[in-house]
């Protein structure tokens, strides 16, 4: 019983027809049935085929995760649903833009740490940086955590995109 009740985090890829309202259908499904969304990204992936790919990171018991996939799969404009957490070995990345303001030693420390995270400076003034950092969500969390005492003022994150390893298409 306890095994069934365990909350798992899953990354699910959904290939959809890029038609009006399709994102609302997916989001509405999650809100209407009380499922969690930890992260959601969407973008057109094939212009000629009019398909978009939605990546949802969600959490729930195994029964709920199974429900989520079945519910997504029965939406009319959905081509395919893939649970990257169980069906494939996958890689996932997120990008964040992180604004840090400060002067003196704190500013130098921020720059030094950004180097360790292979973050890029994409905007700077005498009193601020905007860093672009890419990696797993936890890497980004760590970077943001380190920036907080150094003058963190603003964060914008893309949410997770993910893809299966190996030569096969979804």
């Amino acid at each position: 019983m306890t095994q069934d009740e365990k909350i798992e985090r899953h990354t699910i890829s959904v290939l959809v027809d890029n038609e009006a309202g399709v994102l609302a259908r997916v989001v509405g499904l999650f809100s209407g049935r009380g499922y969690n969304i930890e992260s959601l990204t969407v973008g057109e992936v094939d212009q000629s085929e009019h398909t978009s790919r939605i990546t949802v990171v969600t959490a729930g018991t195994p029964m709920v995760i199974e429900q989520i996939k079945a519910q997504l799969d029965r939406l009319v404009p959905v081509h395919k649903v893939m649970d990257l957490t169980v069906e494939a070995n996958s890689v996932e990345r997120e990008m964040a833009l992180v604004k840090v303001a400060g002067t003196g030693e704190r500013r130098v420390e921020a720059l030094r740490l950004s180097d360790a995270f292979r973050a890029r400076v994409i905007d700077t003034t005498h009193t601020s940086f905007v860093f672009e950092v890419t990696g797993t969500p936890s890497k980004i969390d760590a970077f943001i955590g380190l920036m907080r005492p150094l003058g963190l003022v603003d964060v914008s994150r893309t949410g997770v995109v993910a893809i299966a390893r190996g030569p096969e298409a979804m």
């Binding site: 029964m63 199974e66 429900q67 079945a70 519910q71 799969d73 029965r74």
Partner: peptide, 11 residues
């Protein structure tokens, strides 16, 4: 016929 009905309430 609806996969989402399977294991929704009862395993």
């Amino acid at each position: 016929i609806d996969a989402s009905s399977i294991n929704k309430n009862v395993h």
